[in-house]
Design a protein around this nucleic acid. Structure first.
Length: 512
DNA sequence: AATTGTTTATATCGCG
DNA sequence: CGCGATATAAACAATT
């Protein structure tokens, strides 16, 4: 069972943004959730972003950013094995599955992790309804969550505060106001930008996304906003897009320089050492006064709720399984465990794996694998890439994977995805990114991105599609959204495996 | 006045 | 110890 579990983790979570988070009654449920649990009809920021999108054509991928990447770095041509393209992805996936994007367990789409917060210009730091810091509940009651402080059993003294440096990855940052997310500000900005699915977003939307997705910042001193602004200004990754004269509102928009996107998210976790626990100072006194009970969602001593703990035997089984199937020999089970199963993401390469990220140096480009996927392409870039569209044949995908054809490291058979059709998962519509006409942009960056992304791009998109987006996607409204609403029963998926027949199925059964 | 954006300064941390 | 990355604070200007 576990081996298939792992396999499908690789197949799906790395791509779909699904999260394996629960086993119930012997049925392993694969929960898939995705972005845009936001209420329809929201105004304010939505309008702003929509407006921004309407003007995006004039702002996409200016030549400077394009040339910066294609020339100065030699960029994508330089390989850097240390930056495996999916590392950030899996990290990002689980992080969002467990944190920013609440993984769901039920078959019902859970629109919000905290109920609805109206969009608009209200103070970003305004606590959400149901905010545990506001109502004294550490985590949303009654909602199963993948976020769990696995292996925190010994930390009952401060269960919701202490991550102890063990597995804070399973902290539900959406609901836990005490632990500072282990992301740099730049990464947070990137997340917000990507989650927005817009080419450019205003500062207020960045605030909004961060506060919506990281409870910590809802209660933290607002000086973090200063840091955000500081980062936007100083970090060359971010490009300011002036607001057009006919665009109402204050300030400009911000977009990410695609050339820097990967680097940023390769460092999706702050590599810089951070204290094991950064307790929101604003809450410390309250916590001292009112010690909180063990929050729901925390890993119980048996680890049964979430945070699947993988014992060495299981990992060995998986390895054997993969050796038998030939599936993705590049996959690091440690990584998978760390990212998909709740362990703190491994710092691949160890302490010597230093990230180079200079705020102000466009020339100090990190080497990016040419086939790595950039998760931070603007929506127009996504759209233009086109590879997001088309029939996403999961039968074929699973087939390929089980037969060892599928290499998640790119260049696989998925590259030439047919275009002009919606994503389909066994007949279920996956909200495709709207592909407006006339967005063809043959910038160097895009060309480079297209060339370099290849098959990874689908993974990238799918893996990040579940990021919560505070901005409703009109194209998704009223449509059945597989990623948002579906819970895939693995047994159903395995039915596919049955159809594959042969040794693989037996191996699967053996592992089960 | 509030928000947004820029700049400077300082501190910490990890790494070579 | 120097350097780079990051965080934090603060001052200041521009804009709405």
């Amino acid at each position: 069972m576990l081996g298939v579990y792992f396999l499908l983790v690789r197949l799906l979570s790395g791509g779909i943004g699904g999260s394996f988070n629960h086993r119930s009654g012997g049925r392993t449920m694969l929960s898939l959730s995705c972005a845009d649990p936001w209420p329809e009809g929201s105004v304010g920021l939505e309008e702003e972003v929509v407006t921004a999108a309407a003007h995006s054509e004039e702002l996409d991928l200016d030549d400077s950013s394009a040339s910066a990447g294609s020339s100065s770095t030699g960029g994508s041509d330089n390989l850097d094995d240390s930056l495996t393209s999916l590392q950030w992805l899996q990290e990002f996936s689980i992080l969002n599955a467990n944190g920013p994007q609440q993984a769901t367990l039920s078959t019902h789409h859970q629109p919000h992790f905290f109920g609805h917060q109206q969009l608009g210009s209200e103070a970003p730091a305004s606590p959400l309804a149901g905010d545990p810091a506001s109502i004294g509940m550490p985590l949303t009651p009654g909602k199963p969550t993948a976020a769990a402080y696995c292996r925190m059993q010994s930390l009952s003294a401060l269960p919701s505060l202490v991550s102890h440096g063990h597995c804070p990855d399973e902290v539900d940052y959406k609901t836990n106001p005490h632990i500072k997310p282990p992301y740099s500000y730049a990464t947070l900005i990137c997340m917000a930008m990507q989650a927005s699915k817009k080419t450019k977003i205003p500062l207020s939307c960045i605030y909004k996304w961060i506060t919506d997705n990281f409870c910590y910042f809802r209660h933290a001193d607002p000086t973090w906003q200063n840091s955000i602004r500081h980062n936007l200004s100083l970090n060359k990754c971010f490009i300011k897009v002036p607001r057009q004269k006919d665009e109402p509102g204050k300030g400009g928009f911000w977009k990410i320089d695609p050339q820097y996107a990967e680097r940023l998210l390769n460092g999706a976790y702050k590599k810089r050492g951070v204290p094991p626990v950064q307790i929101n100072p604003a809450l410390q006194n309250r916590l001292r006064a009112n010690p909180q009970p063990l929050p729901r969602g925390l890993c119980n001593p048996t680890g049964s709720q979430s945070g699947l703990c993988v014992n060495p035997e299981a990992q060995q089984l998986l390895r054997e399984f993969e050796e038998a199937t030939g599936a993705d020999q590049n996959w690091d089970p440690c990584l998978a465990e760390g990212t998909m199963l709740g362990a703190w993401p491994m710092r691949k390469g160890g302490p010597g794996h230093k990230r180079k990220h200079t705020l102000g140096s466009r020339t100090a480009m990190v080497k990016v694998p040419w086939r790595s996927s950039s998760p931070l392409l603007s929506v127009e870039e996504y759209r233009e890439l086109g590879s997001l569209k088309g029939n996403f044949d999961w039968d074929a995908l699973l087939d390929s994977a089980l037969s060892g054809e599928l290499s998640l490291d790119g260049g696989g058979p998925l590259s030439p995805i047919p275009q002009e059709e919606d994503l389909m998962v066994r007949g279920t519509h996956i909200c495709p990114l709207e592909a407006p006409a006339g967005t063809a942009d043959s910038s160097h960056v895009l060309a480079e991105t297209q060339r370099s992304s290849g098959a990874d791009f689908e993974e990238t998109f799918l893996a990040t599609a579940f990021l919560q987006s505070p901005w409703p996607e009109e194209e998704e409204q009223g449509s059945t959204n597989f990623l948002c609403s579906s819970t895939v029963n693995l047994e159903q998926l395995f039915d596919l495996g049955d159809s594959l027949g042969g040794d693989l199925s037996s191996k699967i059964e053996y592992l089960l």
